[in-house]
């Protein structure tokens, strides 16, 4: 009846609802106690409303993480959708924090919410950025380390979207291997 009402603006729904988590390293507390859910969103517009209003990753304190995971998947190995999975891992030099890190993280987020991995997108659980004094890291987590075709397609797509040159090799590590490692070296299950 009210002809003066503007046409309702429809937000653009995402395929999944996503949850953004924040980790701050407080040494007196357990890892679980240091992880907090910030918020969830399921539209393009709500993603930007969040992204534009939180601290950019490169300005976080050392020891902090952001994690973006599909709603219902916790950002930890123990979640049943992660425990048989693994991660594509990209490590950065200290200098890259100020030149490339935020661009790479945003591109990773856009790959996730845009479901950029075609038929293999369902294998993607989420992504994590670690801000660390010794070197920052971005990791994309997938649900099953044995899904070779999915893992490789996701890795190649990520590498292309981030614009990494061919000579840069990134590795995929199974969480089971990371969790049981004795030293700091974890064997790559795949590389692209």
């Amino acid at each position: 009846q009210d002809m003066s009402m503007p046409t309702r603006y429809m937000k653009h729904p995402l395929q999944s609802r996503w949850a953004l988590w924040f980790y701050k390293n407080v040494k007196s507390k357990t890892w679980h106690a240091n992880v907090r859910l910030i918020t969830k969103f399921d539209t393009v517009e709500d993603f930007w409303a969040l992204y534009n209003n939180i601290q950019i990753a490169s300005k976080l304190m050392s020891g902090c993480d952001y994690s973006l995971f599909r709603d219902g998947i916790e950002p930890m190995w123990e979640d049943y959708r992660n425990k048989c999975g693994g991660r594509w891992l990209i490590t950065f030099s200290k200098q890259q924090r100020h030149t490339e890190l935020d661009r790479f993280w945003l591109e990773t987020l856009l790959c996730l919410i845009g479901e950029s991995f075609g038929d293999y997108s369902d294998d993607v659980c989420g992504a994590v950025i670690n801000i660390r004094a010794k070197g920052d890291k971005i990791a994309l987590w997938t649900t099953h380390a044995e899904n070779r075709d999915a893992v490789l397609h996701i890795g190649r797509t990520l590498k292309e979207r981030l614009g990494l040159p061919a000579k840069i090799v990134i590795g995929y590590q199974a969480h089971a291997d990371t969790a049981t490692k004795s030293g700091s070296i974890v064997n790559n299950k795949f590389v692209v």
Partner: peptide, 20 residues
């Protein structure tokens, strides 16, 4: 079908005025 959005589409919404 699956809702897939390419980067240019997503980036186009970064600075859209907030809707009520």
């Amino acid at each position: 079908g699956k809702k897939q959005y390419d980067r240019e589409f997503l980036l186009g919404f970064q600075f859209m005025p907030a809707c009520i």
